[in-house]
Amino acid sequence: MFAAGATSVSAATSDVQKVIDETYVQPDYVLGYSLSSDQQSQTLSLLGYDSSKDTSVKTLTTSAYAKIMNVADDSSLQLYSSVKIQKLGSKETLTVDIVTPENITKVTEDMYRNAAVTLGIEHAKITVASPIAVTGESALAGIYYSLEKNGAMVSDESKELAQEELSTLSTINEANDGKDGYDANKLNVALTDIKSAVADKGDSLTKSDARKIVEETLDNYGLKSSMTDSQITLIVNFAINLSKSSIIDSSSFKSTLNDLKDSIVSKASSSFKGINVNFNADKALTASKGFFAKIWQAIVDFFNGIASSFSTK
């Protein structure tokens, strides 16, 4: 087995992107613990490992996975999906490349990208591979592990949010795959809009606000009718949890989301024909509140008029 990895080379910081920019001189590889020696070599080759210059290879053990994911350490855990993280220039966008799409059965590239933004990653290249068919969900733990070993303080809150997001997206996508009116690209773009609107509202977001934002956004992308109430509630709950997170306070959070959104729309342009991709869920929420305020005022005025007609002259 490869060693579990080097310790932090810099003072720990909560600025995840700063750690990537300053520490990832070489790409960092994190292999799943369950890989055999032959599978390790195969996976490294799939991830583009260059033995002449790449030296940073870590193994995500079951105990490390349990600690990261806040679950019981179980030696029967099967960890196969593996990742490579490498830095990019500040003007480049966050990218994810699944080089074995046939073996990552539940998570798409854009789902990983959405979750990575929630972790605080702004620009980096993440490559995912597995030599056998797996869901791919444990690869996210490999990203946490790499970041923490290189000096990033990834809060439990951020980990839980990113994992919740990935689980929500993958569960909805799996349940609706092939259903008329459903499109995974639209869901990923809808989530970028939802997260941007949540960032605008901050911790003042109410549960009713969250539901309105989610439903209005899904409706804009033609997804609402193809999703169940319980699936919509999963997104609403994620939105509420996100509103309490410090990640939305980052000055680059919304710009990174916009870059991700533009990238998805550009790549899957045919999916967005006739759709308002400039939809702003926060403005829709404000407009709806204004509409209901006008209705309420009309009701008040009506009853005030009745009362005044009975008043003594």
Results as ranks from 00 to 15, higher is better:
Leu191Lys: 11
Ser250Thr: 12
Asp110Trp: 09
Leu257Ala: 00
Ala116Trp: 11
Ser138Trp: 05
Gly178Phe: 05
Ser130Trp: 03
Asn114Gln: 11
Ala6Pro: 12
Asp177Leu: 14
Phe303Met: 08
Ser255Trp: 12
Asp183Val: 08
His123Gln: 10
Val16Gln: 10
Ser271Lys: 09
Thr228Pro: 08
Lys273Val: 13
Lys289Val: 07
Val198Cys: 00
Ser266Val: 08
Gln17Ile: 08
Leu94Pro: 03
Ser37Cys: 11
Lys267Gly: 06
Asn150Pro: 07
Val198Gly: 04
Glu157Lys: 13
Thr55Ser: 14
Lys149Gln: 14
Gly48Asp: 03
Gln231Cys: 05
Asn276Thr: 03
Lys207Leu: 12
Lys179Arg: 14
Asp219Gln: 15
Asn276Phe: 01
Gln163Ser: 14
Asp110Leu: 10
Met111Tyr: 07
Asp183Met: 07
Asp177Thr: 13
Asp209Gln: 05
Thr206Glu: 01
Gln86Glu: 15
Ser37Thr: 14
Thr100Tyr: 02
Ser36Pro: 07
Gly222His: 03
Phe310Pro: 11
Asp74Leu: 03
Ala287Glu: 10
Tyr221Arg: 07
Ser245Gly: 00
Val300Gly: 09
Tyr145Ser: 05
Ala284Lys: 08
Lys186Ser: 06
Asn70Ser: 12
Ile121Val: 13
Ser82Lys: 06
Thr192Trp: 02
Glu137Thr: 15
Gly142Phe: 01
Tyr65Trp: 01
Leu205Glu: 00
Ala133Arg: 12
Thr217Glu: 07
Lys84Cys: 04
Leu218Thr: 02
Ala124Thr: 10
Leu218Pro: 05
Asp262Ile: 03
Ser252Arg: 10
Tyr182Asn: 01
Leu79Val: 07
Ala199Asn: 03
Leu285Cys: 01
Asn258Lys: 15
Thr192Ala: 01
Asp73Gln: 08
Thr228Phe: 07
Met69Asn: 14
Tyr49Val: 05
Val30Met: 02
Ile264Val: 02
Asp229Phe: 08
Glu122Leu: 12
Asp177Cys: 10
Asp282Asn: 15
Ala293Val: 07
Ser250Tyr: 12
Thr118Arg: 11
Leu44Phe: 03
Gln39Asp: 09
Ser36Gly: 05
Lys58Pro: 09
Ser245Trp: 04
Ser14Asp: 14
Ser81Gln: 06
Val300Glu: 10
Lys289Trp: 04
Gln231Asn: 06
Thr256Pro: 01
Glu22Gly: 09
Tyr24Asn: 08
Val99Cys: 05
Ser204Thr: 12
Ile121Tyr: 08
Met1Pro: 13
Met69Asp: 14
Pro27Gly: 04
Thr55Asp: 13
Val128Gly: 04
Lys58Glu: 15
Tyr182Trp: 00
Ser246Pro: 04
Lys254Thr: 11
Ser225Gly: 12
Ser269Met: 03
Val25Arg: 13
Thr93His: 12
Asn241His: 09
Ile232Ser: 07
Ser204Leu: 07
Ala287Arg: 09
Glu164Gln: 15
Lys283Thr: 15
Gly48His: 00
Leu169Asn: 11
Val277Leu: 04
Ile213Leu: 02
Leu147Thr: 04
Glu160Gly: 15
Ser196Val: 07
Thr61Tyr: 02
Leu94His: 00
Ala12Lys: 14
Leu44Glu: 00
Thr43Lys: 02
Thr59Asn: 12
Ser41Val: 15
Ile275Gly: 04
Thr171Ile: 11
Leu119Arg: 06
Pro131Arg: 03
Val300Phe: 09
Asp209Thr: 05
Ala12His: 13
Ile264Glu: 01
Tyr182Leu: 06
Gln78Ser: 15
Leu140Met: 05
